[in-house]
């Protein structure tokens, strides 16, 4: 095959796989936004908190799966604590109040994580090498990193499971109902606190998975908090309330930033990968503010 085309596919695939990981981070936002109509500023902090704790437990000598289990438990506890001390006192308050509360939560989580585990950059070895898989390279001529592929698969599975939970299960229905109105949901007996604990714990687990995948590549460090920023254009393009939207948008962002870098980048002197997705997001904000799959804001007079 023509090496130019091969190279194009390689860039595209790399972009798509990176995109799935963006989706994974954005998914945490969507979960919480759907259930409580609040943009969770602390999502990035949760990613950092989760994976730092995981690495911390590993360093204490826990085997991989035990450490994973303990960290999942920890994230459930964080979800319960968030419900008890942040959400419950603020029930029926304005969304802006909740947003401010999540900013506070972000600082608490970042601070707590560093207080307990220290500030140095950690290495996380998942046992999956970040090198091209040779049999794919031999067969097609395209170089795909094993880590990218595993990350993509894990993210895809999580996204699929959550999409089904949202649309098909009772707790999913309760969650969407709560998102539409706390008061109305309470009045028909949907237990707000249970739904919230479920959502925040799930978001915490998603954050852990995202943190592990990113941490394995870039090291476990404070910069992971900034990952949340990468999720922003994904959210804007996909829509804040849509699980499928986040997947598609993640792929779009991943693919477009890599392609833009390779094919348009040279005209600007390179380095456009960092901001190309935001340009795309701005275009969406101008022409389709609810995103690709987002729910239109229903306003009747």
């Amino acid at each position: 095959m023509n090496p130019e085309i091969l190279f194009f596919f390689e860039v595209l695939l790399g972009g798509l796989l990176a995109g799935v990981m963006y989706s994974l981070v954005a998914l945490g936002f969507v979960l919480i936004y759907k259930a409580s109509s609040v943009f969770n500023f602390a999502q990035g902090a949760m990613v950092f908190f989760a994976v730092l704790s995981f690495v911390g437990f590993m360093e204490l000598g826990l085997p991989f799966f035990l450490a994973l289990l303990v960290t999942v438990g920890l994230m459930v506890l964080v979800g319960m604590a968030t419900e008890r001390f942040v959400l419950r006192p603020l029930v029926n308050q304005h969304e802006d109040t909740l947003l401010m509360a999540t900013i506070g939560l972000a600082f608490v989580l970042e601070g707590l994580a560093q207080l307990v585990w220290g500030v140095e950059v950690r290495r996380l070895d998942l046992g999956i090498p970040d090198v091209p898989i040779m049999w794919i390279a031999d067969a097609t001529g395209i170089f795909v990193s094993a880590l990218d592929l595993v990350a993509g698969l894990v993210a895809a599975v999580m996204v699929a499971v959550l999409a089904i939970v949202f649309s098909r299960t009772k707790v999913g229905l309760g969650l969407r109902a709560v998102a539409d109105g706390h008061g109305a949901a309470m009045s028909i007996g949907i237990p707000l606190s249970q739904v919230w604990v479920f959502v925040w714990a799930t978001a915490g687990i998603v954050a852990l998975v995202a943190g592990m995948l990113w941490g394995a590549r870039a090291g476990v460090q404070f910069a992971l908090v900034g990952l949340a920023l990468k999720a922003l254009p994904v959210l804007i393009i996909g829509g804040f309330t849509s699980v499928p939207g986040v997947i598609v948008a993640g792929l779009i962002v991943g693919a477009s930033e890599k392609l833009a870098e390779v094919y348009i980048g040279p005209y600007f002197g390179g380095g456009i990968e960092g901001w190309a997705p935001y340009m795309l997001a701005v275009l969406f904000l101008m022409f389709r503010p609810e995103g690709l799959f987002g729910e239109r804001i229903i306003r009747r007079v």
């Binding site: 229905l173 109902a177 539409d180 007996g189």
Partner: peptide
């Protein structure tokens, strides 16, 4: 629940 269908609204009523 504005974003839910009429039927989903009703089903949510049987949540408990």
């Amino acid at each position: 629940f504005g974003h839910l269908t009429v039927e989903e609204n009703l089903v949510a009523g049987a949540y408990t």
